[in-house]
Amino acid sequence: MYQYIGLIAVLPGIVYFTFFINRFIKTILNYHTNMLIILVIGLVVSMLSLPAINTLELYGVIYYHLLVIMLILELLNIILKKFLIYRFIFTTGVLAIIITALVLGYGYYNIKHVIPTTYNLISKKISDLKIIEIADLHMSTSLSVLQLQEYCNEISKEKADIVVLTGDIFDENTPLDDMLNACKVLSTISNKQGIYYIYGNHDNGSHAFKDIAFTPEDIRKNLEFNGIEVLDDEIVTLENINIIGRKDASFWGTNPRLSTVELLAKIPDDKKDNYTILLDHQPLDLEENASLGIDLQLSGHTHGGQLFPMGIVQTLTSDTLVRGQRNIDDFTAITTTGMSGWRYPIKTGAPSEYVIIKVK
């Protein structure tokens, strides 16, 4: 699928870059081109463009950013070409290269710079509850184990009641040693009532593009060895809190799992009125969960739209809660942008974050 999308995007890229270089040769180098030269330019451009068909690699990200920025500047050129300085720096490609470098440089800084985001909620069922949510670490994409330890030390200062890890903490590119060490590090986060983990579409093995260094069972084993409870269509009932951990729906939403109704039925009768938190890696079934009396749903998965403007497009074309908070009567859903991103260490669409939720 990704390669088909890449092919559709690369074809106009080949045409445009061929046109751009031909114009550069004629206007800046003042050299007359003929059909043979244009064909040679097109062949070279094609050779440089075809690797970008793989939209999941860094080369493709750089290619498409450059292409889009050049097309935007092309439109501006219609208005600004009367200014010699603009026409020159645009036609030479200098301006596009500088802007692309700045955008991608910002994306690299943004994915590496993790900030806390705080939500203040009100509930009639519970007060003075503090929750830490961590999602989409995609361990080793942008965070080392040492950096993770530094953030966990910072998070520990919050003295949370519970900590939830809402999926894609690891992925198919995480080395085995990093998975093992990250489990230990995450277990050091200070808490009063436990750390709870659910699988995402990457760390459950359903989205692997290559052989993964460990299995979902290995993840469970090492998390539980370090005192972190794994919930895979399972529930935990505490004194005044219910925690429902859903099995991930998989990237394509095809992974069989229990319904919210079936999971709610597992809650003992004397705990039905507890403050109920549902953990679902993907922000799904918000309306349904609100109607069933869930108090809080915590999700990740979207990365806030890792590359701009993906988040805006997804928000405009679907009902997905890409990032932030949504209230439906007494129900609240929160989707975190995650502490990292997938595949490449660039994130231009949203900040990297961990979430602090205070319920009063």
Rank of each mutant, 00 (worst) to 15 (best):
L186T: 07
G205Y: 12
T302I: 02
E353V: 07
P51R: 13
G6A: 04
L76C: 12
I111R: 07
E239V: 06
M47H: 04
E133K: 11
V359E: 06
V40F: 06
T332P: 02
Y108V: 13
Y199N: 09
L29K: 14
R87I: 00
G300K: 00
G324R: 01
T336S: 15
L29P: 03
Y344T: 13
S140N: 08
L238H: 05
L186G: 05
D273F: 05
D319M: 06
L121S: 04
Q314S: 14
D285G: 04
F17P: 03
L80Q: 04
K157L: 12
G341H: 01
V164P: 08
V230L: 01
F214V: 00
R257Y: 02
K184R: 14
C152K: 05
L284N: 10
K271I: 00
L278S: 14
T302G: 03
I277W: 02
L321K: 03
Y2D: 08
A290D: 05
V236D: 06
I14K: 08
F83T: 04
L7W: 08
N289S: 10
T55H: 05
T332L: 05
L307F: 15
R220K: 15
I155A: 11
T332V: 15
V61M: 09
T336W: 09
Q147F: 05
T33L: 15
G349H: 01
A290I: 07
M179T: 06
V163A: 10
I162L: 13
D203H: 01
G305L: 00
L56I: 12
L148E: 11
N191T: 05
G200H: 01
Y4F: 07
H202N: 15
S187A: 14
N181C: 00
K266Y: 10
Y59R: 00
I53L: 12
I228N: 12
I97T: 13
F331Q: 01
K125Y: 07
D270G: 01
D128Q: 13
I132N: 11
S318F: 04
D295C: 10
I89S: 14
S352C: 09
R323D: 07
A9R: 03
L36A: 12
N77I: 03
K247N: 04
N120K: 13
R323V: 07
I5W: 04
N222I: 00
L56Y: 14
W252G: 11
N120R: 13
I53Q: 08
R323L: 03
L176V: 09
I219W: 02
I346L: 10
K360Y: 12
Y59W: 08
Y344E: 09
Y59N: 02
Y354G: 06
I62P: 02
G304K: 02
R257A: 04
R326L: 10
G341C: 02
K184N: 13
P116C: 04
F251E: 14
I195D: 09
V185P: 05
E288N: 13
I155T: 10
G349Y: 03
A213N: 10
L129C: 13
R326E: 15
E158H: 07
E217L: 06
H303W: 07
I5P: 04
G245W: 00
N22R: 14
P175W: 02
V322H: 00
D218F: 04
H207R: 11
T27N: 14
S140R: 03
E150S: 13
S123G: 07
V103H: 08
S299K: 09
T117A: 08
A135R: 00
H138S: 11
I243R: 01
K247G: 05
P283I: 09
S299Q: 09
N240S: 15
I28C: 08
Y196W: 03
G105V: 12
